[in-house]
């Protein structure tokens, strides 16, 4: 188990180093000088040079890379060109929206997908299965921003149960959760549809295994065989998808954040790109990469917890 974790952790570290080099190199080759962009067309060479020094844009590439990485390791992500505040501060504010939103949506999607997937697999070929497969097909096909607008129309405009957008802040946790509910539902729908289908097919495959027959021969009912023997074995592909979905939800909610006017990470990086705020883009991208790699690592750990065959490696 320890060796397995050590190799996974090593691969996590290496991935981070490679990612940081790639991100830094990409930002370097993007055309456009942030300093001239910020100061406009009429800036003199002296002011430009002064701003470059202030932003740390002079010096060798290698030095700047080291400074960037070293800064991140100590929690210093640089200062945003446009906002003129530390990037760490900006990110932290947004993270308080994006992270809860991602967790909220993922929790919803898992809570829906597990029972739905299990029901479909247990009734394979039956009316319920066909209905569930049709429903999930629809869930994947419907664009989530359109679904989000429907939610707004119904629950915010007509029923007025929720506000149509904006974020209330965490001073009142209940209010914060309430303002995240509609976006989370909109995000969770397609994810739950995908996850339910994965759950169903993984479970169907497991139900055909010999050990299910053994379990039935011991006197377990179909239901007991599913819950006690099939479910845990079907979890590996499901965990993989959950890991991928979490990474996607953290960064991929740009459109939903725009529909609901949420100050999240997706919007931050979008603004950073349009305004050539490279420090923000660089740091947020790195942070997202870190989150994705960390989630992958956690999924690997979860594999080992589920499957004893991985622990002995």
């Amino acid at each position: 188990m320890l060796r397995y974790l050590a190799t996974r952790a090593l691969s996590l570290g290496l991935s981070l180093v490679v990612a940081s080099v790639v991100i830094f190199a990409l930002i370097e080759v993007i055309p456009g000088d942030p300093a001239s962009y910020m100061l406009g067309l009429n800036a003199t060479d002296e002011t430009l040079a002064a701003l470059r020094t202030e932003l740390g844009l002079d010096g060798s590439k290698f030095d700047r890379y080291l400074a960037w990485v070293g800064g991140m390791l100590t929690g210093d992500f640089g200062v945003s060109y446009t906002y003129r505040v530390p990037v760490a501060e900006l990110v932290l504010d947004r993270l308080w929206v994006s992270l809860p939103l991602a967790i909220y949506a993922l929790t919803l999607s898992t809570l829906i997908a597990f029972p739905v997937g299990i029901l479909a697999a247990a009734n394979r070929g039956g009316v319920l299965d066909v209905a569930i497969m049709g429903g999930t097909q629809l869930g994947i096909a419907v664009p989530n921003f359109w679904f989000a607008m429907l939610l707004v129309l119904l629950f915010a405009v007509t029923l007025q149960w929720f506000s149509a957008g904006g974020f209330a802040g965490w001073d009142d946790p209940l209010l914060a959760i309430k303002s995240l509910t509609l976006p989370a539902v909109a995000l969770a729908l397609p994810q739950a549809s995908i996850l339910a289908r994965v759950m169903r097919s993984a479970l169907i495959e497991t139900l055909e295994q010999d050990y299910i027959r053994t379990a039935r021969a011991k006197g377990l009912s179909r239901r007991q065989a599913v819950l006690r023997h099939a479910l845990k074995n079907a979890l590996i592909p499901v965990l993989t998808i959950i890991g991928l979905q979490f990474s996607f939800l953290l960064a991929g909610a740009i459109i939903i954040e725009n529909v609901f006017f949420l100050p999240g990470l997706g919007r931050l990086i979008f603004q950073g790109i349009t305004q050539r705020d490279l420090v923000v883009v660089e740091s947020v991208t790195m942070l997202l990469v870190f989150a994705v790699i960390l989630v992958t690592f956690l999924v690997d750990v979860a594999y080992a917890l589920v499957d004893p065959r991985l622990r002995r490696r």
Partner: peptide, 14 residues
């Protein structure tokens, strides 16, 4: 009680 042909796959691996 019953036992089957394929002992390699007859037990739950987890």
């Amino acid at each position: 009680g019953m036992i089957f042909q394929e002992p390699m796959t007859a037990l739950n691996p987890v």
